[in-house]
Nucleic acid binder design. Structure first.
Lengths: 255, 255
DNA sequence: CGCACACTTGAACCCCCTCAACCCAAGTGG
DNA sequence: CCACTTGGGTTGAGGGGGTTCAAGTGTGCG
């Protein structure tokens, strides 16, 4: 059941606006552009994009999207990692995803956000006021096409997560999580197959529909079975990727 | 873990094409148009739409989208109900949603379908070959906008379902399911608050991440508590909507 | 050092699953 | 008409995977 007792009260962040409107436009130097919907806009129109985007930093632990609030802005993460989550009244929490650089947030069609978002490490994002983004989409239909693409991708990921939450065992969930995280950090692989885990055990638990204790126990069990190694609490290296993968996909019916 | 023993082999359906290309165009008389992405296309262009849409019927129990198959078509349900699901190799199944009239399927960005779809009752849909739909979207950007809207809506629903699967108890899941089904059948309310359940107990179980037995037991328990009545196995009427709702939303922490 | 905080480990419990029987309505065939 | 089958749904008893509660083990930081 896992009802959390009195989660710490979330203070609305006072975000730091970066280079408020002057200096070189931030979009042309944005490292996240390649992965994001913004790459639908050509170099020649980047200035237009930059006039709409409000670059903002938030500190770790700060919540910058509040479920139920009026959805006045869209967000595009450019660095750092945020967790997206929904709460039940007694404090039970489900993390629906982790948003890294390039992820676009705020596609709530209704007038309010359907989830909350909290920075895990230091997060920088571009904020787009809704009417201004609407106008932008009118002028750049290619961007709308990209938005549809990313929404479709997220939908596929969400279905995969439903399979995990509804039908997989704790071991399979953790294995799936590690495989997925490993795929994400493939481009920036430092050393062998070491995976950085910026989120806490509690976050992983709330993402996988488990408790902290079960996540921890499962990690040590996978370690004892030589499938992974755990150099530090915030990193995991995969020793037997094939074994982990077949676990994640639901073979190895034995527990 | 609920591994299904040898699920019945699925035979590829030989669908029945309805009025293959002649007669009055089906789109102008389509009852589902108001709920679907097709209402983005004006009356004057319906003929163009009709030349692209291939109306097809499938029998109950037939699978008409196979996970992993090449995603060559898009589908728009016009009547009946289908279940969308993913399987694990040992037969464990997760139903990710039920598709009613107006639902648009096939937004798999990768080249293959991410899920399977099977008709529950008799289903009729419009099939759009991928390249033809692409061309259609070029000509009618309003339709693309509608697609983005529906994809966003489904994303919100998927997040809600993750919360259910990851953090709700069996009672809360069943209550949530009944509330959601009740909302859907609000427009066509026959008598009081009777909800038609075209899907079997097994389907409900695989949708809620439970077993058939738990679903059945929970139904009878809710009945004994006077929250619902069960006139037939395929219908439920809500006696205490407020109570059911507060259960669904996670109040009533007692089991 | 000592405190805080995250993570780990242990033991008992419990909700839901498993397995099995039973009910019941709808065929089906003699 | 009745015996038999079939398939969905219900109910019961027992077991197990993950939770709960509680204690221990780092580990960073003032």
């Amino acid at each position: 059941m896992n009802p959390r007792p009195a989660r710490s009260i979330t203070v609305r962040p006072r975000p730091i606006m970066v280079e408020p409107g002057r200096g070189a436009d931030p979009c042309s130097t944005c490292g996240a552009r390649g992965n994001s919907v913004c790459d639908a806009i050509g170099d020649e129109d980047l200035e237009r994009l930059a006039t709409v985007a409000i670059v903002t930093d938030v500190e770790p632990g700060k919540t910058f999207i509040h479920e139920g609030d009026s959805a006045d802005n869209f967000f595009n993460i450019t660095s750092g990692t945020a967790k997206l989550y929904k709460l039940l009244p007694d404090g039970r929490r489900q993390i629906t995803g982790f948003a890294r650089a390039g992820v676009f947030l705020g596609l709530a069609v209704s007038s309010t956000y359907a989830f909350s978002a909290e920075a895990i490490d230091r997060v920088r994002f571009c904020r787009f006021p809704r009417p201004k983004l609407q106008a932008l989409l009118e002028d750049f239909p290619a961007m709308e096409k990209r938005l549809l693409e990313t929404a479709s991708n997220e939908l596929v990921a969400a279905q995969e997560q439903m399979l995990l939450l509804g039908r997989k065992t704790a071991r399979e969930r953790v294995a799936s999580f590690l495989i997925a995280q490993g795929l994400l950090s493939l481009p920036c692989r430092h050393a062998h197959d070491e995976i950085a885990l910026p989120m806490s055990r509690g976050d992983i638990a709330d993402y996988l529909g488990l408790t902290i204790e079960t996540v921890s126990r499962t990690f040590t069990r996978l370690k004892n079975e030589q499938l992974i190694a755990i150099p530090t609490a915030t990193a995991v290296s995969v020793l037997d990727r094939a074994g982990l993968l077949s676990l994640a996909e639901g073979y190895e019916s034995d527990n």
